[in-house]
Design a protein around this nucleic acid. Structure first.
Length: 275
DNA sequence: AAGAAGTCCTGGGCGC
DNA sequence: TGCGCCCAGGACTTCT
């Protein structure tokens, strides 16, 4: 699932290739993946625009276009954005094709059809549903230990759901949340307000470390993720607990367990991460 | 008002 | 072998 490190990697791999290119035409093969405006308008507006720069906010990808427009993309579970030669046979589940003025293409594919694209005026980005309520960027300087301590103290919820709350910290998903908690030796069910200063510092450090290592490994390909060049990530080789139910914890060798918290699975080591 | 549940999807894993 | 069931999961909506 594309989380912060995967989206960052897609952004970086695509930026090298498409920044400065113009979109000559757009094929929308599955109109419902276009959130706004309606597919026909999306196509009309995107056509002729130049892709200036790419940015990321949480798990959202932002394409800053000429004409004061921004394309917002969320890959959700299985979405892919891949730069391809025009004669490349279309991958299964390709829903949108951007024709670029160098003859190549940018293709959006998504097996589960959860991912969404939107095209809005620059001024509307800050008001866009989902984007507008995003919390702090965990790799930005604003995400300090003091900030985390202040926030944890006033929340009664458990750590795992809190880390997945995009209005709190933007960009963590199930994989990196579980890995961060394991690295900080914190149980996913721990009530947020019960952490000591020392534990808070460990969590703060762990969140940043797992994300930075994820980016350094070019993301985690648990199943479907590929970057803007269609290449798999490498961080799946370094996962300590995620997806490892019944297998040994890579730190202590005891068996990794999986529990359900708010309908989401949480992998953890009951020895390293005591309640 | 926070927290929980329902919704969207389809490949893959499982039981029989 | 093959059928049917159910699960995974991010973010948004709806319910409590």
């Amino acid at each position: 699932m594309p989380e912060l490190p995967e989206v960052e990697t897609v952004k970086n791999t695509l930026a090298d290739r498409i920044a400065g290119l113009a979109i000559t035409d757009v094929d929308v093969l599955l109109p419902k993946v276009i959130r706004v405006p309606v597919a026909e308008e999306f196509r009309r507006l995107a056509g002729g625009k130049t892709i200036r720069t790419l940015a990321r906010r949480g798990k959202y990808l932002l394409f800053h276009l000429s004409g004061g427009l921004t394309m917002i993309v969320h890959l959700r579970m299985t979405g892919r954005l891949v730069y391809t030669a025009a004669d490349e046979p279309p991958a299964r589940y390709t829903h949108v094709i951007f024709h670029l003025d160098n003859g190549d293409q940018l293709r959006f594919a998504d097996m589960r059809q959860f991912g969404r694209l939107a095209l809005v005026e620059n001024e509307a980005v800050a008001h866009f549903p989902g984007l507008k309520d995003l919390g702090v960027e965990p790799l930005a300087p604003e995400f300090t230990r003091e900030f985390l301590q202040r926030e944890l103290r006033r929340r009664r919820t458990r750590l795992k759901p809190l880390l997945l709350d995009q209005t709190f910290i933007a960009g963590l998903g199930n994989i990196y949340a579980d890995e961060a908690l394991h690295r900080a030796r914190l149980h996913p069910q721990r009530p947020a307000h019960t952490l000591s200063a020392r534990e808070t510092a460990a969590l703060h450090r762990a969140i940043r470390e797992v994300l930075l290592e994820g980016i350094a490994e070019r993301g985690t390909t648990f199943r479907d993720y590929v970057d803007g060049n269609g290449r798999r990530g490498g961080f799946q080789e370094k996962l300590q607990v995620y997806g490892r139910e019944g297998r040994p914890c890579r730190r202590c060798g005891r068996t990794v367990e999986r529990i359900r918290i708010n309908g989401r699975s949480a992998y953890f080591c009951p020895f390293c991460q005591k309640q």
